[in-house]
Amino acid sequence: MDLTMFMQQMVNGFSLGSMYALIAIGYTMVYGVLRLINFAHGDIMMVGGFLGFFGMEVLGLPFVAAVLLAIVGAALLGMASDRVAYRPLREAPKISLLITAIGVSFFLENAFNVFFGGVPRAFPVPAYLEVMVEFFGLMMPMSAVIVPIMTAFLLSVILWILFKTKYGMAIRALAFDVGTVNLMGIDANRVITLVFGMGSALAAVGGIFWAVNYPSVEPMMGVLVGLKAFAAAVVGGIGSVGGAVLGGLIIGFTEVVVIAFFPELGGYKDAFAFIFLILILLFKPTGILGIDFEKSRF
């Protein structure tokens, strides 16, 4: 394998890792404030992909407008899922919350399956994302350049919200101690709903990128991607936004690069994320950017 080929694979890995990262941020933020493994997050990503598809195919919107529609729609869906399925259970045992999360996940998968069919639909990728561009001698589709740039941009927006705004301060405080946050006169429920909205918006972007890359959408597309992104969040250190991005990139790179070097391991591609996850948890249970859960968050 020559250098160009290697660099090519690195770019692919970066692009795939960015998608995992976008989805992993939502997992890590929800876990940070609620200690909930939100199993429905992958399905919100699927809904984001579908909204983009409907925006372009049914409403005839241009790609960028369809992305905005998907972001707003998924954010509203995420907030609604919190309002209906998680908010009534704030005081309940964690396991009940996990069951309603699985309930929301089953609901979204099956509702989309019943009403829109389980057959993958071709995603109308705009021509300007498929144009091949040359970049230091590497040929790659425009989307492989745009995905990491968009991810970096969204990540900086999220970090700005978390560390420079009052809402961000409330989110960090909430992750630290719910009881005290309530004493400070902050409406914890509103902040948690906001977290779901932010996470779901990022998942929608991830879903659309996914749909562009494998140009199709189908109701089950979020299951495995969601679990891998969750594994990425844990590998990076759950509760940490930077960790989620790092974990996503590591898992994306591993999947692409290992397959490129050892094609015979192709069948195990989907297991890498989980093998990584198990190894990390055995040797450094708090993840790479390990956050001690008794001390600080994000």
Partner: peptide
């Protein structure tokens, strides 16, 4: 006929049971 409809109803029942009855 809508194959899968029962899973939609089942998951809704599950969510509402936990949200409002526990």
């Amino acid at each position: 006929a809508m194959p899968g409809m029962r899973m939609v109803v089942f998951s809704l029942v599950l969510i509402f049971y936990y949200a409002f009855c526990s």
